[in-house]
């Protein structure tokens, strides 16, 4: 009880004493953790570089402007590659994501004990590993180039799309599914007539959303050799050609803004 009697007066407290103690202990532990972590970072930091950072930043800025506009001509092809990596990668991810989502959703999985955990493990593995790491892995296996980028984007997107899709499937209205089952329809027909129409808008929205994210991610895949505009970024940073870097940033920013606008419009039209 938050109300305590002390010398005949009722004292109101927000929490009971034990709970209050626990809350304080929680805050204390959290603060200690953060402070300890911070010390770990401080120990690994060259502080004279940090004190120098404002000067470095100003210097960097001075070297970055003006951007090298003439460099744009060499960027169109890598930019085209970047867009293709994102688009083809997203398309390639949609194909396996649908069956995985059906296996992972509680109301469509054939077995909640065996199949569902396996599908969930696939999803979490795909999601845990950033597309840049997938790209690192694929460049090392199938060699540098656009294909490694496409596969990396696809592998990362499978988990994302499948997770959101299976959550959408779990939230559908059960009544039509029951009605379709009652007509004597087979399993596949129940999925296509009872479930698919209900999750189709969500699926389209998720796909476009992921495409938008993939555009952003594919701009940096070139850093590890997986094709696209990131390759140019890597080589420009390596030779400290900062005006070129600025130009690349401008182009990436424009692409991202445009893709986000497209994605927002399409999603708005669907929902």
């Amino acid at each position: 009880m938050p109300v305590r009697h002390a010398a005949g007066v009722r004292v109101w407290q927000r929490r009971a004493r034990r709970r209050q103690l626990l809350v304080w202990l929680g805050w204390l532990a959290g603060t200690l953790l953060i402070v300890a972590s911070w010390q770990g970072i401080a120990a690994n930091t060259m502080w004279n570089f940090v004190w120098d950072a404002p000067a470095q930043g100003a210097d960097l800025l001075a070297r970055m402007v003006p951007p090298r506009w003439a460099y744009t001509g060499r960027l169109w092809r890598p930019l085209w590659d970047t867009i293709n990596i994102a688009t083809l990668g997203t398309l390639a991810a949609l194909v396996p994501a649908v069956p995985i989502a059906l296996l992972a959703a509680r109301n469509t999985t054939p077995s909640a004990v065996l199949v569902r955990p396996a599908a969930l493990l696939l999803i979490v593995s795909s999601r845990s590993i950033n597309s840049l790491i997938w790209a690192l892995l694929l460049v090392s296996i199938i060699g540098p180039g656009v294909l490694a980028g496409i596969v990396a984007i696809a592998l990362r997107s499978i988990g994302f799309v499948a997770k959101l899709l299976y959550e959408a499937i779990e939230e559908i209205d059960r009544a039509p599914v029951e009605a379709i089952t009652a007509t004597g329809a087979g399993r596949a027909q129940v999925v296509t007539f009872g479930i698919a129409p209900q999750v189709l808008p969500a699926f389209a929205g998720i796909s476009v959303f992921r495409w938008d994210i993939n555009i952003r991610e594919s701009t940096v895949l070139g850093l590890v050799g997986a094709g696209g505009i990131g390759l140019e970024l890597q080589s420009s940073v390596n030779v400290l050609a900062w005006p070129q870097v600025t130009m690349i940033f401008i182009l990436i920013l424009a692409t991202v803004v445009v893709s986000e606008a497209i994605s927002a419009r399409v999603r708005h039209a669907i929902i």
């Binding site: 009544a175 009605a179 379709i180 009652a182 007509t183 004597g184 027909q189 007539f193 129409p197």
Partner: peptide, 29 residues
């Protein structure tokens, strides 16, 4: 189940399908 038609309280139509598609879904069996 084909020999047992079922009618539901909240109609249980597939809302995003057309009327005809809903009716035809009775033939799925």
């Amino acid at each position: 189940r084909r020999r047992m038609g079922m009618i539901f309280q909240e109609f249980a139509l597939v809302e995003r399908l057309s009327v005809m598609e809903n009716v035809l879904s009775g033939r799925l069996g």
